[in-house]
Design a protein around this nucleic acid. Structure first.
Lengths: 202, 202
DNA sequence: CGATATCTTGATAAGCATCAATGTGAGTGG
DNA sequence: CCACTCACATTGATGCTTATCAAGATATCG
């Protein structure tokens, strides 16, 4: 039997849901995934948009404590939990890579805690754009909806929209289409993401 | 040369600061640590209160991206990064334990993201108390200050204080001293932590 | 027992959510 | 090919939750 198998999923398709048996581990091969947690009344917090190289389903318990679905078309490498743990136990290099990805995710999670707990709407938005741009060039794709961005940054759709408009009016970005952002002033954007002062004139 | 060495620190003593060389890994042996990140203007987000069994300094880069100091008197087991990585590479059981602690911390971080991004002040406070109580009995110690709690929950000192008062007036808790909380109605507290509806009458 | 940090309580204000309407683009069927 | 539809995005008006500012109460420690 093969150790792992590839699978493909379409936008919106579910990978796993909260409460599912945690008997699988996935590695993202291509595309963007949306991971989230829900409250009983429907409030949602998106915990990340993992892309190639990230693992899903490392959770230590017997059930998944969050959910994952596809933002774009995605390709996943699927392991049974048993196979994954055997691999990690027998191949130190693999174990090391998993640990190093996990440590990286922990660090990113801490950055996100700072963002959610202590940053303003503008700072959140600027941080998000700078983060996405690190993954690429001066023009960034937003494959997710405004609602997704809101649920990632702890805001509402309306505030996300207003904040993007504000950044556009200040000349920091352009929005050729709702799903594409051009960063026109990376430095000021980065400053907004970490500072609070400066900026005021339009 | 020994693989690791024990060290002790007093309340307020720093373990490492943001920007320090990331050449050490610590395991908490006893006491409570405070981990946090800062913004340039002084805003602080506490990312956790690790206790016995947790690791500090797993960050993948060359420098620490957060800071840690002692809440209570603490005992730490110190490894050089090199020794730690050798250990993880050569002893699968150790590597597995590290990975499993890391996965647990990731899961806790996701819960905290949900808390910071989507919960109200009362829900945050109730979640915090229920979380602490899981580590112990029906009476819980709060070795940290109100300011620490505020910076952990993304609130202000005043809101933390008011929210505790509100929970006390509703009969859910008692505060025999500022650093001690008795949970009088675990069920309603847990309900508050996850739901939003219910509750209204005092 | 007095000094000082911490905590609590009160009054006001700001930032963001909510409610409501309009605008825009992609896909569909006539 | 074009009108229709529906999801998504933007903009505006208002209100609520929580921050901020300010004062007083309590606890801790030398």
């Amino acid at each position: 039997m093969a150790i792992s198998s590839l699978m493909r999923k379409w936008p919106g398709e579910i990978v796993f849901a909260e409460g599912d048996a945690a008997d699988s581990v996935y590695e993202v091969v291509a595309g963007m995934v949306r991971r989230f947690k829900l409250l009983p009344d429907g409030r949602r917090q998106i915990t990340g948009f993992p892309t190639a190289g990230r693992f899903l389903g490392l959770a230590p318990g017997a059930v998944c404590t969050d959910a994952a679905d596809a933002v774009t078309e995605i390709t996943l490498c699927h392991y049974t939990r048993a196979a994954f743990e055997r691999l990690a136990g027998e191949v130190p290099d693999f174990a090391q890579r998993v640990l190093s990805v996990a440590a990286l995710e922990l660090q990113e999670a801490q950055n996100q805690l700072l963002l959610l707990g202590r940053k303003t709407a503008v700072e959140k938005m600027a941080s998000f754009l700078v983060l996405l741009a690190d993954r690429g060039a001066d023009a960034v794709d937003l494959p997710m909806t405004r609602g997704d961005i809101a649920d990632y940054l702890g805001l509402t759709v309306e505030t996300v929209s207003r904040t993007l408009t504000e950044l556009r009016r200040k000349g920091l970005i352009a929005l050729p289409s709702p799903n594409r952002v051009e960063l026109h002033d990376r430095a000021r954007l980065a400053a907004l993401a970490w500072h609070t002062a400066a900026e005021s004139a339009a």
